[in-house]
């Protein structure tokens, strides 16, 4: 009996530990265990300075997905950003993606503004209308050195 009590407590300990590991990796670390529950689209930006993998995608201030990959398009040296969006969000093919900053010095995120077209953007499609990130340093520089018209 005593032996089983020891084995039971070891089992409880291991399960509790694994539960904590699961919480840390799946919930906090965003490890996708089962394929993920969204679909992919790409957006082409001129400049994505400061945007990070895993940043949020928002529409009207509501989170609808995450940035799932950033790479360079070798043809025209633009940035291709992969967006993983929730299944129930439908975009039109003239949606506008822009890179915004939360607060003055906060993290960058992608904001999607809905378009007016009737045609839906298919999974795997490309958002062509984009606005690049605003560089605060550049803006200040323009004011200081008189680049503003």
């Amino acid at each position: 009996m005593k032996k089983y009590a020891m084995e039971t407590s070891v089992g409880v300990f291991v399960l509790a530990g694994l539960l904590c590991v699961a919480y840390l990796t799946v919930k906090l670390g965003k490890l996708e265990v089962v394929g993920g529950d969204g679909y992919q689209v790409t957006a082409k930006f001129k400049d994505v300075t400061g945007l990070k993998n895993g940043a949020y995608v928002e529409m009207a201030g509501v989170r609808i997905g995450r940035v799932s990959g950033i790479r360079l398009d070798p043809k025209d040296h633009a940035a291709l950003v992969g967006l993983t969006l929730d299944k129930d969000v439908r975009l039109t093919d003239d949606a506008i993606a822009s890179i915004k900053t939360s607060g003055l010095i906060g993290d960058k995120f992608v904001k999607i503004s809905p378009g007016g077209s009737d045609d839906a953007l298919a999974p795997g499609g490309m958002i062509v209308e984009t606005e690049s990130s605003v560089d605060l340093g550049d803006l200040i520089g323009k004011y200081v050195f008189g680049g503003v018209k």
Binding site: F13, A16, G17, L18, C20, V21, L24
Partner: peptide, 12 residues
């Protein structure tokens, strides 16, 4: 076995 599990418990 124990160190990573205990670390996970500590973290949470």
């Amino acid at each position: 076995i124990c160190f990573p599990l205990l670390t996970a418990i500590f973290d949470v």
